[in-house]
Design a binder for these strands. Sequence first.
DNA 1: TAGATTGTTAATCGATTAACAATC
DNA 2: TAGATTGTTAATCGATTAACAATC
Lengths: 210, 210
Amino acid sequence: MEKDISQAVIRRMPRYYRYLGDLLDAGVERISSNDLSKKMHVTASQIRQDLNNFGGFGQQGYGYNVKYLYDEIGKILGLTETHNMIVVGVGNLGQAVTNYVKFDKLGFKIIGLFDSNPEKEGQDVRGMKIMMMEDLPKFVKENKVDIAALTLPRAYAEKTARDLVNLGITSIWNFAHVDLDDIDGIVVENVHLSDSLMRLSYNALNNKNI
Amino acid sequence: MEKDISQAVIRRMPRYYRYLGDLLDAGVERISSNDLSKKMHVTASQIRQDLNNFGGFGQQGYGYNVKYLYDEIGKILGLTETHNMIVVGVGNLGQAVTNYVKFDKLGFKIIGLFDSNPEKEGQDVRGMKIMMMEDLPKFVKENKVDIAALTLPRAYAEKTARDLVNLGITSIWNFAHVDLDDIDGIVVENVHLSDSLMRLSYNALNNKNI
DNA sequence: TAGATTGTTAATCGATTAACAATC
DNA sequence: TAGATTGTTAATCGATTAACAATC
């Protein structure tokens, strides 16, 4: 039973990962928390605190080895294994998500598209045939599904999420504009585009550069 | 010079707006911070604190009038005026964003699509013709553009953002996987999908229900 | 060894929660 | 008026920053 790491820290980890990846591409071998802090506009103290939640990856007098730290953060974030995903709700957003995931070079892989509209059955999207929701239980038995992207209208989102969790798919990438946190055993990551737009609107109005 | 309202508060405002909208749809006329807090799984204290950053919208002994509070939050978020948007980078994600904004019933309106690939010039996307980036200065002079959605590869994002800001479009809805905060006068709202996926991966791995 | 930089403890800051007087 | 519930001040909690001893 390890100590719980705060979501504030988790939110920052992908950003470290990105900067370290860039340094790696640039051929940089080592970096100190101080130099990294200048690039990222955060304090060196925060970088060291954040990393030390997961272990001592640095070395006194040397700093951090870029490649090593990059790989370690990758492990922490679970990027060493492939994650099989399905997309539930194959409208425009669902198709964009499908495409996005396909082209991003992280280890996420779309293995099935599902919709409840019979007219879409068998339609081809990026080389995959759309399946019907009623085919999902069988599909889950025959395939390892790690994550479901929920890209359907909010009216159907909660019921569908419950069904998914009951089928054993507990990790939901939620694009529907509802909160799903009530559902027992669920792990949700929300992408609420309209919330994001509203914040932009507010900050634009008030001229906030965050 | 009003006091600055923290981004932690701003992040929560759209969620209040959504819950109040639902209450409104359900015909609820008034609500106390306590009842709302139970629905939203936050403390009543936080709701009252958050709202009082912007004004005293409630009434002792009564609570909050749902319609009134909903409208006030709408005003705070700048949802009373239409926001004209352009989409810069009309690949798959750009098209999805176009479609998404069109169907969402907030006051955001796409008035132009721009790309730098000459092959796309004049192509029709949801009833709009794709224009070339070199047409943008003219377009900005002739149209009021409030927000640009940046949906292009990260390699082009920063330069393009600088160009946009120079043209006077300072509010950027950034889907490219780079930080743009350095740019003078910019207001950025990031939608970093891959960061979101990584957090989901971490939380799934560690079985965190946030 | 001397210098650099981490890991970690202590201090500060800000955000959240609790409490309660004001007031509808 | 009595009861309910806000607006707001005070207390607590957690996250960020500073400081420094440990150590490469």
